[in-house]
Design a protein around this nucleic acid. Sequence first.
DNA 1: TATTAAACCTATTGACTTACTAGGACAAGT
DNA 2: ACTTGTCCTAGTAAGTCAATAGGTTTAATA
Lengths: 148, 148
Amino acid sequence: MKVSTKVEFGIIALADIAINSNNGKAVSIAGISERHNISAKYLEHILIALKQANLIRGQKGARGGYVLARPSDKITFFDIINALDITILSGSYIDDSQDNSSFKTTVNECLWDKMNLYLQDFVKKITLAEVAEQCRTANSENEYMYYI
Amino acid sequence: MKVSTKVEFGIIALADIAINSNNGKAVSIAGISERHNISAKYLEHILIALKQANLIRGQKGARGGYVLARPSDKITFFDIINALDITILSGSYIDDSQDNSSFKTTVNECLWDKMNLYLQDFVKKITLAEVAEQCRTANSENEYMYYI
DNA sequence: TATTAAACCTATTGACTTACTAGGACAAGT
DNA sequence: ACTTGTCCTAGTAAGTCAATAGGTTTAATA
């Protein structure tokens, strides 16, 4: 499945915020950028998109940053993916009005629409909390390796 | 789900061949082009890709065209989609070697890999025969409407 | 209150991909 | 031979992607 860096980085940023915003502390772009080697300037755009989708809240000024807008187990991958790339989970099909047969319409309805619904079912079941937990585990195992 | 015209037209072309190649008669690009208002020159490229994936066989010369390489119920959408766009059903992820955490790897494994497998399950179950049948039905209903 | 650290905003750009088009070479049936 | 088709190699205009650049605004803190 082809997925843009925007979506990929957005998920990583959210997982990072979920993990690092303990006791309400805001997580800065600079921090996320350093921890995962992602361009800070690029992250800006991504976080703004996530903010507009009401998944995170920004806090301006010194010691500012981002916090989740609601608990991580209430944020699904459906929410995240849709916030960053609307084309992934919904159809953006070719025009079928010029078709002399009704093949295009039939294929859209019988294949792509069903495939989208199927995909949506999948991503609605996965929460940010689950993936953040896996990231935390994998990362602490990593650190353990380093300090042996 | 974002899908290219190449994939979309490829499916329509295959459904058309499945329906119109009765008693072994080859179906020409010109015919497919007219029936569905798709550029014949563009269709060439698409059919060549389908041929290279061994889904259809080409017959050169006058009265030439294409026939399915095997029965339509032995051709799945997994075959078709993979023939036309390898990125849809397999991962083409970002590089995770520069990540200071292991988040990228974790997200790839926990999310995208699973999503790909899930999608593959879906498209492996659908055969060209089924969709061609639906296209035939929808099309004959269309014609019925015209002749009332 | 000046400084500083951060989010926020608008614009631009190079590389890449998509969706075609062009022009022919080759092959087979009539 | 002639026609009808596939097969093959290029090219190209438009669009998208992945960033970069340079600023403004806001809020904590020294």
